[in-house]
Design a protein around this nucleic acid. Structure first.
Lengths: 151, 151
DNA sequence: CAGTATATTGAAAATCATTAGCATGTGGTT
DNA sequence: AACCACATGCTAATGATTTTCAATATACTG
């Protein structure tokens, strides 16, 4: 197992380096706040809200403010390091997994998980006049935790 | 063309009747507000927010209040006459098209259109412990209007 | 390595979307 | 027509996000 964990660690380090490079490229300053936000997102498998990120960051870096987390997450999205995940209601959720994947969404509690599988469909370049960029399959259902509560 | 328009009109009338029946069945009262909200949703091809619905209703029925539109839209969703549409940020959007279809979403302005086509994929009953209910393909791109602004 | 310009931050206030509380009004039933 | 429970309108409350602005820290320059 050690090589997997080691590989993941390297991968995260690499991504943080890429983020730092991207900031430099855009003339953005490298601040501990920016790095901390991206670090938290890279270490989470779920899809935290800004509030979630803020709460986790405060443990390690109590100096970071909520407004900064909002701003940083926005920056990360513009640079393509995280994606917003669609969900009706509640807060926006963020995902540092920018590879192609789909989402499993709990209609009760809003929990969102990534699922990796391929569908046999490729988006056309254009559709109804839209210039197509990407797509994602949203699968709605009831998560195990909420199923357990159903009684 | 007359027969298509006439058919659509009948269809909308029929849906309103179905809604009225459904309300009776659930012991809900038939109020002009409830009917007005569903009427607006049936007449729109786009995916209005609650605010949008409210503004349109006020023209014809100035007595309706915003809180009631929120409540009614919730009722319509519970009875299965409209669906919420996922979108990151801004307001929740509603869709009176409850048939299987997918969504084309503009990443610039948030405009959402229905697109009807089939993908060669059927959801499994269960997935990662979730009890699967339904799914929808979200295709992100830039709408014609926003493309026109790009210069 | 200090000095400086400027982007970034924290804190609080402002804004926007949505929900809740409560007094009043109305649909549907007798 | 009268009654009663549910629905509505208004307003205040809540929650999420954005903005403002003074204070601060980064990265550049000499």
């Amino acid at each position: 197992m050690w090589f997997i964990l080691y590989g993941m660690m390297l991968d995260k380090e690499k991504r943080i380096q890429e983020f730092i490079e991207a900031c430099k490229g855009m003339g953005l300053k490298i601040t501990p706040q920016r790095v901390a936000v991206y670090e938290v997102l890279l270490n989470r498998e779920d899809h935290p809200t800004v509030e979630d990120i803020y709460n986790e960051i405060k443990k390690k870096y109590p100096f970071v403010s909520l407004a900064t987390v909002y701003r940083t997450v926005e920056t990360l999205e513009e640079l393509g390091f995280v994606k917003k995940v669609a969900y009706w209601g509640g807060s926006i959720r963020y995902d540092a997994n920018t590879s192609d994947h789909h989402h499993l969404i709990c209609v009760q509690c809003g929990a969102i998980r990534d699922v990796e599988f391929r569908i046999n469909w490729e988006p056309p370049e254009r559709m109804e006049g839209y210039r197509v960029l990407n797509y994602s399959l949203h699968i709605y259902g009831v998560c195990p935790t909420c199923q357990a509560k159903e009684n």
